[in-house]
Design a protein around this nucleic acid. Structure first.
Lengths: 293, 293
DNA sequence: TTGTAAGCGTTATCAG
DNA sequence: CTGATAACGCTTACAA
């Protein structure tokens, strides 16, 4: 920066003003040009550590994605964040809960903000941080259930995990709400705990289809079905939610729903940066119709 | 830090010396104690940004895991890195190639080192950076092939991807080497490109088993088998490599091999930190014997 | 054995 | 409109 200042015959302060488009400064176009040109020629790159020291926080935001299902929906949310944050000159770091040293790294970074999606889901002030993702969730579950209804199913169970993850519990509630909105009877829970007899038991109760909270849960159900000589969708239709890459590899290939979480990611980023939401309008959820339902 | 200095009646420099066990400084135990106690009482936490500015690099190392298969082996490698780096006060960041803003974040961090595993595999000076992981690879492939041999297979194909990832190409070479060491004929390549007829064609060529470069490739083979009315291991035995969580969900459940990559992670970290390798001795690879082979 | 002071590269305040 | 200058929190010669 000192070199740029020298090369363009101004002070470091002026360089800073120009390069950051500092508001409330009135610098002649000629000077600005000279500074910018010099910066470009010298290959000036702001030193982010120094900037972070000065600003009290780095221009990095962290997304804690610890317990989240890792499918297309998350990737897509991340892509959205990436886009907007990148455009604003911010960096994005995704933490998948790798371990202590990862936590150490994150605190060392002094991020500008951290988006803790799992925590957000638990708390009440959600829409602030997730760009409305959650609030749209019931609508997305509608898409999932509707696909089943269109195929003649009304007795639908919902596959939930054995452990009680708060995030997944919230999802379960959304499925119930969606079922209510569609005038469906409240869905029976199918607790996925490795017992291959569970789905067969459901059949006896008259259930004809299962909507899973996540693709992985759906896959577990398919596995249990296969283990007991049953098959999807003949004996039981199964639909997932997340579009993980390995859902497509299964046989029968998993039917699932894919969200346009990218728009939510963009909205999250924009609110985080204090920008207007803009045009990031999420497309409706889409059923990826494969073989299992 | 100023407060700690004041509280213990010494200068900031002394505080720094004590807290970092600066070599070549001879500070009486009494003083050291006072300083440490004060630091603890005041809850002093070194400011990593300031430190990074001063040192020219943060105490963070980045692992670029972009194109790598994401199964147990990678997680285990990461766990090993995590352990050693954490113990040395370093942070670890894993970059899964999320996008531009992630790259921006990484450069903004000025990491002490970056371990670019994919690049390492391509380059010649590998054992420097991966703790000998690669060099042990042939031995691990031996385990994979031996499992097949023990079940009477000698005509073995290797499932490789359609695109030519340099990392996977390297793996393919290791399988060939392992086959040679076992006195097996050079394995035919099974190019996994979504064509479900490929495995059936292999059968005609007399092949009875497939060793896949990764679990995902193995799963694709299983899917192709299912699509053509064949099954594993009856028609074709299939063994994966990586122990991904969804391999266990498939039916037939995928037999695969799991590495003790944790030890390699630890070794990588230690060489990176300039420490002696120590006791991190990798256990031999283990076959996770499920249904597919 | 301890303290002083320079400096890491920015940004922001305040005079000119 | 522009330029000194003072922080930000830490490390490390060098002095005492």
């Amino acid at each position: 920066m000192r070199d740029v200042a020298a090369a363009s015959g101004v002070s470091q302060a002026t360089v800073s003003f120009v390069l950051n488009d500092a508001p409330g400064q009135t610098i002649p176009a000629a000077t600005r040009d000279r500074v910018r040109r010099a910066a470009a020629e010298l290959g000036y790159r702001p030193h982010s550590i120094a900037r972070a020291l000065r600003e009290g926080a780095s221009r990095i935001v962290v997304l804690e994605a610890g317990g989240l299902p890792r499918g297309h929906n998350l990737s897509s949310f991340i892509a959205g964040l990436d886009e907007e944050l990148g455009a604003a000159g911010f960096g994005l770091l995704v933490a998948y809960g790798e371990g202590v040293s990862a936590q150490a790294a994150i605190t060392a970074i002094e991020p500008r903000a951290v988006i803790d999606l799992p925590a957000v889901y638990a708390g009440p002030d959600r829409d602030v941080a997730d760009g409305g993702w959650i609030d749209g969730m019931v609508a997305h579950r509608l898409v999932q259930l509707r696909h089943l209804m269109e195929r003649g199913h009304r007795a639908i169970a919902v596959a939930v995990p054995a452990d009680d993850d708060p995030f997944l519990a919230l999802m379960a509630g959304q499925v119930r709400d969606a079922a209510g909105e569609l005038g469906l009877p409240s869905p029976l829970p199918l607790v996925v705990d490795g017992d291959p007899e569970k789905p067969a038991g459901l059949l006896k109760a008259g259930v004809t289809a299962v909507a899973a909270l996540t693709d992985d849960l759906a896959l577990s159900v398919l596995a249990a079905l296969a283990d007991t000589g049953l098959s999807a969708p003949g004996d039981l239709a199964v639909i997932g939610f997340d579009d993980t890459p390995h859902g497509a590899l299964w046989r029968p290939a998993l039917t699932t729903v894919r969200l346009d979480a990218r728009a939510y990611g963009r909205r999250t980023a924009r609110t985080l940066l204090g920008l207007p939401i803009g045009d990031a309008r999420p497309a409706p959820a889409r059923v990826i119709s494969r073989a299992s339902a």
